[in-house]
Simulated scan of single mutants.
Amino acid sequence: MEKITAILCLLIAMFSIQGGASFAKQLFPALGPEATTFLRVWISALILLAIYQPWKHKFSKQALQAVALYGISLGAMNLLFYLSLERIPLGIAVALEFTGPLAVATFASKRLLDVMWALLAALGIVLILPHSDFSQSIDIVGVLFALAAGAFWGLYIIFGKKLGSHIKGGSATAMGMLVAALTVTPTSVSSLHFADYTGYIWLMALAVAILSSALPYSLEMIALRRIPSKTFGVLMSLEPAIAALMGLIFLSEKLSGIQLAAIVCVMGASCGSSLTSRSAEVPPQT
């Protein structure tokens, strides 16, 4: 029963994250990706700080340095992902972003099998790139933004593991989210016009923050305590498909057959890497 509960929590978390991303994209016409990132990350940070209250604890200089690196990578990942989402469909953006964790797994391994999964993911990227035979072209700048977001997701994983050795639990995420909020602020200031924001915009921003960070983080922590990390990683491989479904339902984003095949390649690479890795784990994408 506990395993079933954990799987349900993880599935709800993934639908929540991608639902939040689809709501965020609906804010882009009014706010733009930079201001949307600002509101999402700052609201998330304030919620997590209120819940975990990290100021009640004392942290070493090394721990604070780890928080800074973790938070900067988290902020850059969120900003670059939203910049990509402005230009390309949600399902494709998520699939491309998954290359970050795959790259970390590949570089950490010396086995030929892991290189094979990386090549499968690379095939997915090639299929996504603009080509004369495609039935629907893709914005190359959006692709580059998504790949860059994936690179920072990879750094987020690396720095998150280092941070975990200094600070445990939600305090680490709360402090990291605060640094992420500070990181995205300079690029967002010129896009902010608080006096023009309606109640609807503030409610949507709150929904994005809760759906994209606070709720899925809590659910993923429940899942991680009840199922093996390898099972967690395999289930996380479903996220690009869920993103494509959310994009279709909420954003009317229809993908071509080749684009869907590209997403399947990335999902297959992620699932295969999780199944065959000695320490398969894809940390939550907060």
Rank of each mutant, 00 (worst) to 15 (best):
A223M: 03
G32T: 05
C265K: 01
A121P: 09
M77A: 08
I210D: 00
M116L: 15
L64R: 10
L27R: 01
V266W: 10
A205V: 03
T173M: 10
I47P: 04
P216V: 00
G164M: 05
T106D: 08
F159I: 05
V94A: 07
K168Y: 10
G150L: 06
A121K: 02
K25P: 00
G268S: 05
I201R: 04
S256C: 06
I140Q: 15
V266D: 01
I140E: 09
L49G: 05
T5A: 15
S256K: 01
K61N: 12
A76C: 14
L215G: 01
P283V: 13
R87A: 07
A66H: 13
T99D: 06
F232E: 05
A76E: 13
I249K: 04
A68Y: 11
D133W: 12
V104C: 01
F15Y: 07
F145L: 07
A45L: 09
S274H: 01
I227G: 00
G272L: 03
M236C: 09
P186A: 02
V67S: 00
I157Y: 00
A35L: 03
Y156M: 10
E34A: 15
T173I: 12
L39V: 09
A66Q: 09
I258D: 10
A50Q: 08
L96D: 05
P29F: 03
R226F: 06
A243M: 05
E34Q: 15
A205H: 02
E281V: 13
F152A: 03
S218R: 11
S109W: 05
A262F: 00
F250T: 07
A30C: 11
G32N: 06
T231I: 09
A108P: 08
V67D: 00
I249M: 12
S277C: 06
P89N: 09
V282W: 04
L147Y: 00
V179R: 07
S135A: 13
S252R: 14
L215F: 08
A76S: 14
A108F: 12
S190I: 11
F59V: 11
V94Q: 09
A243G: 10
F38N: 02
S132I: 10
L144G: 07
A195S: 13
L147H: 02
R226E: 09
L238I: 09
L155N: 02
M77Q: 10
I140V: 15
L203S: 13
S277Y: 03
I167S: 00
L251K: 09
V234T: 05
M77N: 10
I47C: 14
L245C: 11
Q259L: 11
E2V: 14
